[in-house]
Amino acid sequence: MKEYKMDTVRRSTLSQLVLEQIVQLLMNGQLKPGDKLPAEMNLMEQFDVSRPVLREALSSLETLEIITRRPRGGTFVNEKVGSNPFKVMLALSINNVPAVIEARMSLELGLVTIAAEKITDDKLELLKETIDSIQANPEGDYGQLDKEFHRIIAQSANNPVVEGMIESLLISHEKTDSLIPYREPDVTVEHHLAIYEALKNRDPYEAFKQMYKHLSFVRAKLLDSIERE
């Protein structure tokens, strides 16, 4: 069995430290795209953690598409992980909520200005449908509609270079969305409509302004929630 040189995880940071250790193995070249990880029992011994802790870390890595777990086949590092550093950086900071929301803001503010120049009428129609659906069912769990709204805008930038950034953006959206303590559908609809109108008018300056207003509101709500814990 191959032995990796790593620090033993001994304190109660649990799965996050295991995740960081595995990412570090990728960064220093001990693990490479396509490599098969040792069996769970071996990893538990090397990291000195329990099976639930290890599985939580592996689940997070799989969500980030850094590894793939194959039934009865083992766990493998994805071949494309080396070409998508954004997911690796996100993996290292996924529990640093202020950093995640700021990263999301930096990506979305750039993407929305490009989208204002490139968005098609079809995409605008899809955007409006997400807003209408939230209005029609304000008491529902509209997290997926919110995510779809932001996904459409990001993809409307139509730039293959930032494709990996968009995937990370959606992962960070899920992370921040899961931490929102309460919903305010009227505010969401108001903000989304303002962004939609700016995009419809092909106005990148107004689109930036309205997206900043929206994401600043989300950031303030999240940070306030964290401070109250």
Rank of each mutant, 00 (worst) to 15 (best):
L58G: 04
H191E: 13
P52H: 08
H191G: 03
R202N: 15
E197T: 14
M105P: 01
L179R: 11
K36H: 11
S216M: 13
G82A: 15
D35Q: 09
Q135S: 11
L25A: 02
L215F: 12
F47Y: 11
D122K: 13
I180F: 13
L31G: 01
D35N: 15
H214V: 06
T13G: 12
K213H: 13
A136M: 12
R55T: 01
I226T: 02
E108L: 10
T75S: 07
E206Y: 00
M211I: 02
G143T: 15
I153W: 06
V189Y: 11
L61E: 04
N137Q: 12
M165F: 15
E108C: 04
R104W: 09
I94P: 01
N137E: 13
A115M: 00
A57L: 09
E79V: 09
D122E: 14
S15M: 09
E163F: 07
K209I: 03
E45R: 14
E148P: 00
N158L: 01
L127F: 00
Q46Y: 06
A207Q: 03
K5C: 05
K147H: 08
P33V: 05
P185V: 12
R219Q: 14
L215D: 04
K221S: 04
D224G: 15
R51N: 04
F217D: 10
V53E: 10
A157R: 10
A116M: 10
V97D: 08
Y142R: 09
S225P: 07
P185D: 11
K147N: 06
L37R: 06
L127H: 00
P160H: 08
D146C: 06
G74N: 03
E3S: 15
G82D: 14
I22L: 14
E56W: 01
H173K: 00
N158I: 02
T75W: 02
D48Y: 01
R70F: 13
P98H: 06
E227S: 09
L193Y: 08
K221Q: 11
A91P: 02
L222F: 10
G143M: 12
T63A: 15
R10W: 05
E229D: 15
K118T: 07
S12A: 07
N84G: 00
S60P: 01
M105Y: 08
L193C: 00
Y142D: 09
P98G: 05
V187Q: 11
T63P: 01
Y196A: 05
E129A: 10
E190K: 12
L61V: 09
H191D: 14
V77E: 05
M6D: 00
K32H: 01
F76I: 03
I131S: 11
P160E: 04
R219Y: 08
I226R: 10
